[in-house]
Simulated scan of single mutants.
Amino acid sequence: MGAGLPAGPDRARELKSLQPTAARLGLRSQDQLHRLATSTTWDDASLRRILVKQADALVGGPDAVLVVDDTALPKQGKRSVGVARQYCGCLDKRATCRVLMSLTLAKDKVPVPVGLRDQVCQMLDRRRRSLR
């Protein structure tokens, strides 16, 4: 776990608030951490490029397979963004859930995840670009 962050299930409840985490990291206030956690403008393109290069070095080649998969996360309530009544594989029935898309590079029995994206984020990104 990161330097200064609590480890173990008994300390996990301290992470529910930004104040103890900010104090443990030596930040003067929780504002910096709050901005980091709630920012929707992270540009992770350079990090994704590095991840893909590393995955290709580990399991790439002509025998590698790119696996695209959807993962439905069951949700409760009707106020969550991006929640819809749809098929949820882990429940094996239609339910209120949110969908994530994953991208994995695999070779033989070794899978290396290279991407995970929330469908709502993709929809919002497309809409944001169309409004420019």
Rank of each mutant, 00 (worst) to 15 (best):
R11E: 01
R11L: 07
A12D: 06
E14G: 04
E14A: 11
E14M: 02
L15S: 10
L15H: 09
L15W: 08
K16A: 11
K16P: 04
S17L: 12
L18I: 13
Q19G: 07
P20K: 05
P20A: 11
P20H: 05
T21L: 04
A23N: 14
R24H: 13
L25R: 06
G26Q: 07
L27F: 11
S29T: 12
S29M: 07
D31A: 15
D31R: 15
L33N: 05
T38A: 10
L47R: 07
L47D: 10
L47C: 01
R48L: 11
R48D: 01
R49C: 04
A55H: 12
D56A: 10
D56N: 12
G60V: 04
G61R: 08
D63M: 14
D63R: 15
V65K: 09
V65E: 15
V67W: 07
V68P: 07
D70M: 05
T71M: 14
K75R: 07
K78D: 14
R79I: 08
G82T: 02
G82Q: 00
V83D: 03
A84P: 03
G89C: 01
C90Q: 00
L91S: 06
L91Q: 07
L91K: 09
L91V: 00
T96Y: 05
C97Y: 09
V99Y: 00
L100D: 13
S102D: 15
T104Y: 03
T104E: 09
A106I: 06
